[in-house]
């Protein structure tokens, strides 16, 4: 992945960023603008198939994700950036399935024909995450140079969730040695936030499950899983948990409230999208990056750190 060709990429926000993850959408766009990067939203994009379609028929999920890749290709892009871990995972999985599984290729061709659009062919478009985008298009050195308002030693636990690196085989660009992302110890978010002045803490649950998939069917387990993540982050000395997935972010915020209500266990760690933290470090106001939309109100802490 060459940094030069990432200055202008196709943008697939996905459904969550239009709803509960609105602040992530807003802060991602603002950070891009501030860094001189260009995001061109896919025209008439559709849901990636998320968990719901995948659990009913994974081939239809592959088709739904592939249709978005077709749109990117038709708009002249060979890279599409998806900031949501679920969308990123599904688009990557579609790329993999269409390169390795004949049945997926056949179903995708049939449904594309029926829908009356071009059939996506494997290898035409590469899906990248918002972390890849900023890390490769800008990099830590340039980012540090552009920081106007350092995060000033803010203690951050970076939480990547379980979808960003899993399953390993759909991420062929990861685990390629220096400069590449690691599936066992992801570090791109750590690298970017450190460049912005944060002090990352050692956090042993950075890829652990937040129970997002259980949120409706077994919310008590989700609450306990999230509470354990929050308490572990606090035990590691974190003031903030940085997130890069709207599902994880919402889960952490909602179950932080629920843990206090149902279990009587209050935690004080604040939850912010990494793009919100980067945006403030780049000189954007807290309002501009949507901090007022967060449930775990971090404004007092941000003011203390000179970031409010």
């Amino acid at each position: 992945m060459d940094g030069g060709d990432l200055k202008k990429v196709a943008y697939y926000p996905g459904c969550a960023l239009e709803g509960t993850g609105h602040a992530y959408n807003r802060s991602t766009k603002e950070v891009g603008k501030k860094l001189g990067l260009d995001l061109v939203e896919l025209k008439d994009w559709n849901c990636c198939g998320a968990m719901e379609v995948k659990n009913i028929d994974p081939k239809i999920q592959t088709y739904l994700s592939a249709r978005n890749l077709t749109i990117a290709e038709e708009m002249g892009f060979d890279k599409v950036m998806a900031p949501c871990n679920g969308c990123y995972h599904n688009l990557k999985k579609a790329e993999y399935d269409l390169a390795h599984d004949e049945k997926s290729v056949e179903v995708n061709a049939r449904l594309s024909q029926k829908a009356g659009h071009k059939t996506y062919e494997a290898g035409k478009v590469e899906t990248i995450h918002a972390l890849d985008w900023i890390k490769k298009a800008v990099g830590e050195e340039e980012l540090a140079r552009r920081v106007q308002n350092s995060l000033n030693g803010l203690k951050v636990a970076n939480y990547y969730g379980c979808m960003y690196t899993r399953p390993r085989h759909i991420f062929p660009e990861k685990d390629k040695g220096p400069g590449s992302e690691s599936t066992s110890k992801p570090h791109f978010m750590d690298d970017l936030l450190a460049a912005a002045g944060a002090q990352n803490v050692e956090f042993p649950l950075k890829t652990a499950c937040c129970g997002g998939a259980h949120s409706l069917s077994d919310s008590d387990t989700s609450t306990k899983l999230v509470l354990n993540i929050l308490e572990t982050a606090e035990a590691c000395g974190a003031e903030v948990i940085a997130t890069e997935c709207p599902t994880c972010h919402t889960g952490l915020e909602m179950h932080q409230v629920r843990a206090e209500k149902v279990l009587g266990r209050k935690t004080n760690v604040k939850i912010l999208y990494f793009t919100q933290l980067l945006g403030m470090a780049l000189g954007l106001s807290a309002k501009k990056v949507g901090v007022q939309e967060n449930l775990s109100d971090p404004r007092d802490l941000l003011r203390q750190k000179g970031l409010g």
């Binding site: 042993p204 649950l205 652990a208 499950c209 129970g211 259980h214 077994d218 387990t221 989700s222 306990k224 899983l225 354990n228 993540i229 308490e231 572990t232 035990a235």
Partner: peptide, 13 residues
């Protein structure tokens, strides 16, 4: 301890 707890909660779930 906290990571073991997470494992037990995840697998139990």
């Amino acid at each position: 301890s906290m990571v073991v707890k997470h494992l037990a909660l995840f697998v139990g779930g």
